[in-house]
Design a protein around this nucleic acid. Sequence first.
DNA 1: TCTGGGGTCCTAGGACCC
DNA 2: TCTGGGGTCCTAGGACCC
Length: 452
Amino acid sequence: MRREPSILHLDLDAFFAAVEQRDKPSLRGRPVVVGGTGGRGVVATASYEARAFGARSAMPTAEARRLCPPGTAFLGGRFAAYRRTSDVVMALLRELSPLVEPVSIDEAYVDLAAGDHDLSVAGVTALATDLKARIAVATGGVTGSVGIGTSKSLAKIGSELRKPDGLTVVPPGQELDVLHPLPVRSLGGVGPATAERLAQISVKTIGDLHRLSLVDLTSLVGQAHGAGLYRLARADDDRPVITDREAKSVSAEETFARDLTDPARLAAEVDALAQRVGSRLQRSGTSGRTVTLKVRRYDFSTLTRSQTLPHAVDDPRQIAEIAHRLLAAVDRSGGLRLLGVGVSGLSPYAQGDLFAEALAPVEDAVVDEDPTGEPVVEPVPADPAPGPAVVAWYPGQDVVHPEHGAGWVWGSGLNRVTVRFEGPRTAPGRVRTLAADDPDLQPADPPDWTTP
DNA sequence: TCTGGGGTCCTAGGACCC
DNA sequence: TCTGGGGTCCTAGGACCC
């Protein structure tokens, strides 16, 4: 917690619906629901007119249709338009301070202490009033709610207090007066499960929470979560505004209009998801070692299966191979409602080489310096240096070996390949490392894993 | 016509190593 | 013969956020 109210939180009001109403005047003043419009869609954003009838974010669109009157617009969403409008707003925020942390497309924190501002309550109030006016002009009428306080959590709570088009500054010294009457759900990190646990011991407000001991709180909700809530209830929050976060995972998933059982369809969906994930990894210049498959069954039960490879991958085909393997090991009877593919354990390098250290160092360029200090880089020879032939083994590939039997490639390096020979998935003794050019090692026809 | 899609962080158990 | 911890990695699941 700071001594001055220098953290600003901006939350654009009913953002997707507001952009639609801006672009389509006939929608202004009418209920608008943006989200999945198919049978299994959910609401992403409901305009305030639609909220008056009970429509809410995350509600099944079918339910919103029952609640809202004829004439309500149900729209699938135009994300490029939302992105453009968001970019305009984020640029305005960066004029205030270099320290801007976008939380999502419609939400951001700004550290005003990193800019040149009067940080008195009157000063930041004037600043926020001016900001809101400039956002409305620059976006063609989209409004936002602003909270300013001495910490992130106070700024966020402030922006929630007067929506839409609100402005709340929590003056230093008044944090606990603002916090304590609010329901515990107002705190970030308190969702339905935590709120229910707290309600069972009659803790409903943040003031109630403040009276719990650290020991009681951590025994109720866990070590890290309990310690975090203990501090937040005391307005003890020194989390910094962070401008750039490195992504930790990349994933894609799809809920099908109807549950899928056809093995060929499922395989094709895995391929398409792996393609999306791999393309995004390659575009961002990252790759990852852990491939995760997510499955939601016909009964909404959800499970994940993952495998960590010895090296990072970004190739859609390799990602798909692993995902197919993982899918083959789950029960698909009854049909699948959703499939997802993800890659985590990201590193900023392209596909690495597990055995690179074991290889003789490759001198691909000679760097020298002349007396002026000017670096001289000799051109790389046109012909690659002689060495072992590169054999294109890839994770998931099926292979056979006369000595070890049938298996599949777990990881591959420039001149070696790790193979998991058939057996229990977790039996480490079944993994063998072979020379990539081992003539005994041959590709095999894939097993018929698509058959249930 | 019940329940999206993209993420983050935490926990807990087992394997494995020292 | 009996009995250790600590630390890290991996896997699976759950809570939470927008």
